[in-house]
């Protein structure tokens, strides 16, 4: 029983770490609320927040309210949600494919979802169809990526990564073709927006339209997080442990893909988060998915919120978020690889 105590103590630290991240996230939200070209003090931003959301009164100007509620809140919400989704699905994919080198972008899921969304736009569909098509595109892409190593009868990690490169390349060509046939007046801008990765024009209505397809798979993934550990041991090991591997694997892939697709629906493709954040989180709390999934989610949310806040504050003409995630993510990933060089051979 003494050892049990140390075990739960460790657990306590993990929860404490998540609470710390939560506090950092809250701090970042307040910071994000008051950074931008329109000057708003922290006090004002909180007053607006409490006034508009909880009806707690407070006096503020109309433009302050419009900026906070109309511009910053949707952006902050969207960037946190997308960060959480991308990081969590990155963790899930890495466990499912027992490969720390992959991410939603490498598997072609993001591009596939992008194509799905583009096709929906071409067909003049919107709302739930948009996320539906994005999901189908993502599932199709990930299926092809997984199928190639199976056809070639190779289970190596490198093969899966290469297969992702192949599918990703094909997907971006298809996307180029769709852009080519799109009506430039009405559709092209919308499609280009998906590929760019930006929160500039995100609206609360868009967020509401995908919130369920984000939260439900997130909860499912969270519920089965311990089983992802077993999945990451490899197929035959998992099977010998009595795991219904097909069911768990398919449910996990569906959830992770749905999460990626939903985030593509509101922000377009944003690279690096699904790769770097899971690594960083793993360094902090270890590889257990039960701890990893919430921690990586929180880290992803904080990271994307910070990146988006930086993009909208520093640049005159807003640049796509992907530029900064790449600029920060790539060297950061290099440092992580350097520190983990012993474990990744």
């Amino acid at each position: 029983m003494r050892r049990l105590a140390t075990n739960s103590k460790k657990n306590f630290y993990a929860v404490g770490f998540d609470l710390l991240l939560l506090a950092i996230l809250a701090g970042c939200i307040v910071m994000a609320l008051c950074s931008g070209k329109y000057p708003i003090t922290p006090k004002e931003s909180l007053e607006v927040l409490f006034g508009e959301v909880f009806g707690k009164g407070g006096v503020y100007s109309e433009m302050t309210k419009n900026v906070v509620m109309g511009l910053r809140i949707p952006r902050i919400t969207a960037s946190i949600l997308c960060g959480v989704m991308l990081a969590m699905s990155g963790v899930a994919y890495q466990s499912i494919f027992k490969n720390p080198l992959i991410s939603p972008d490498f598997l072609g899921v993001s591009n596939g979802a992008c194509i799905g969304a583009a096709i929906a736009i071409l067909m003049g569909l919107g709302g739930i169809y948009l996320s539906g098509f994005a999901f189908l595109g993502g599932i199709l892409a990930v299926s092809i990526t997984v199928l190639i190593p199976t056809i070639l009868k190779s289970e190596s990690n490198i093969m899966l990564v290469l297969s992702g490169v192949i599918v990703g390349g094909a997907m971006s060509s298809i996307l180029g073709f769709i852009k080519y046939v799109a009506d430039p007046e009405t559709e092209l801008a919308a499609i280009t927006y998906w590929t760019m990765g930006s929160f500039s024009y995100v609206t609360m209505a868009e967020i509401k339209s995908v919130i369920l397809t984000m939260v439900i798979p997130m909860l499912i993934l969270f519920g089965m997080s311990w089983w992802l550990d077993i999945l990451s041991m490899g197929e035959s090991e998992a099977k010998s442990l009595g795991v219904n591997i097909k069911l768990i694997r398919n449910v996990a892939i569906a959830c992770a893909t749905l999460m990626t697709a939903s985030s593509v629906c509101i922000s377009g493709t944003i690279g690096w988060i699904g790769l770097v954040i899971p690594h960083f989180a793993r360094m902090c709390v270890g590889p257990n998915n039960t701890k990893l999934i919430p921690t990586a989610g929180l880290m992803g949310g904080i990271f994307l919120l910070l990146v988006d806040t930086i993009t909208r504050t520093i640049s005159m003409a807003e640049m796509p978020v992907s530029i900064l995630t790449g600029l920060i993510g790539a060297p950061f990933y290099a440092v992580l690889l350097y520190r983990q060089r012993k474990t990744i051979s």
Binding site: E52, K56, Y60, S61
Partner: peptide, 8 residues
């Protein structure tokens, strides 16, 4: 969206 504060 809850109740609103005073907008000036």
């Amino acid at each position: 969206c809850g109740k609103q504060g005073t907008v000036q």
